[in-house]
Design a protein around this nucleic acid. Structure first.
Lengths: 228, 228
DNA sequence: CGGATCAGACTTCCATACAAGACTGGCACG
DNA sequence: CGTGCCAGTCTTGTATGGAAGTCTGATCCG
């Protein structure tokens, strides 16, 4: 990464880091920091940030800085709703799924389980989100794949923010159930399973952190209350 | 427009122009031209173009210029597929639609018919696409609304490129049928109608223009052939 | 006449410089 | 001790200049 990179590779690296959970909601992304990190000028870093802003992944606070989005609870729900609608729509629209797709998904699930077993948190975060990207890529529609990739990034951020309690193993099991339905050609069931799967993850969110930016501090203080 | 505008209003103006069919696929959008047109520096124009590129609406040919995308026939099909999947997904996911939404859609259809009757091509192009944006906005999900707006822009470009023969009146009738289904609470039927509606528009595409950039010229020459 | 070559005009690309707002920490004052 | 002020620093915002690639059209040569 010390070698100068193409400007649009900055985007990719950042999104990958988000998908892997290495950077989370609210992280500051300074123009100068990125520029020196990628050995490019501030202009290039800024352009990458502008692109990411258009994709709804970062936002700028004027003259204060660029930050990874920190969706409100309502926005979080909208993102999950969007994924539910789109992924269900895809599964309903697809006529037939080749067996090689099922094989690919099964291979993916194997990797998920491996990551879970070995406590590789980064791979786990990445793979659990990537399952959905894989699925839509298998559908062969680049437009939808791009949309879903960004939406997945948002969802990963949200899950970290609102501490989704949906267990990784449960997610993986649900992925497997979806794959089974696809393998048996029962697309309707696959769509239903997908909706409930995403719904499950969404249901695991807790709005605790949202209402008040002091929550972290508040909880910390509650643990050792001095006075008042 | 001679007064300096905010940089992000450039995006909006361009997208609106696309939606209205005033600028079509392949149109050149020079940095300097936009800058002088909007009374801003090249930097601002360039940033707007970068955003539009991230949204899949323009693309840059290195050191040659910025152009409104000119999707291939395959990409065109993908865009329509994406809209089918997403809009169907939305209609399947929505539980209930308030009567005010139906009213709004009916009012929209009235405007569509007015534009068609008065031969206002710009309004017609805009309104026919905007129906779908309206519908998803009524769903109340900003994420989906943004996605669909950009997708609609792409679709408008495509329709102009591949000369969709789907008649405006027919589109409007189909919009009305969808609205009727929504009014009667039959969301399943609305979803089916939506899929076939978008399918109809897609089916009206002809791949003529794609294979050969000379098609325009060729047709023109065919009308008044001098020699050869 | 046909074709290669080359100058120049025009475009984006990218770095840099400076402007201007936002925050921080210290200092002075009540 | 508490509070307000203010300079210094850090951030993004915006313009501009020159580098470098691309196309066009004229010119020259065979």
């Amino acid at each position: 990464m010390q070698v100068p990179e193409r400007s649009d590779s900055i985007d990719r690296v950042i999104v990958d880091a988000i998908l892997a959970g290495r950077i989370t909601a609210g992280t500051r992304l300074g123009e100068q920091s990125l520029a020196t990190l990628f050995s490019v000028s501030r202009t290039m870093a800024r352009e990458a940030l502008i692109r990411l802003e258009a994709r709804g992944i970062v936002q700028v606070s004027p003259r204060r800085g660029w930050f990874v989005i920190k969706p409100s609870f309502e926005e979080a729900q909208e993102a999950f709703q969007a994924r539910q609608a789109i992924e269900m729509g895809i599964l309903m629209a697809v006529q037939r799924l080749g067996p090689e797709v099922v094989d690919k998904l099964r291979a993916h699930i194997v990797r998920e389980r491996a990551a879970i077993a070995s406590d590789d948190l980064e791979a786990r975060s990445f793979l659990l989100g990537d399952f959905h990207v894989c699925l839509v890529e298998a559908f062969g529609n680049r437009v939808l794949a791009d949309i879903l990739r960004d939406l997945t990034a948002r969802t990963v951020l949200i899950s970290a923010l609102y501490q989704s309690v949906h267990d990784a193993t449960a997610s993986c099991d649900e992925h497997e159930a979806i794959t089974d339905a696809l393998a048996s050609g029962d697309l309707k069931r696959a769509a239903d399973l997908m909706v409930s799967h995403i719904g499950n993850v969404e249901a695991g969110l807790t709005r605790a952190k949202d209402d008040d930016p002091l929550t972290n501090l508040r909880q910390a203080l509650k643990l050792s209350p001095r006075r008042e």
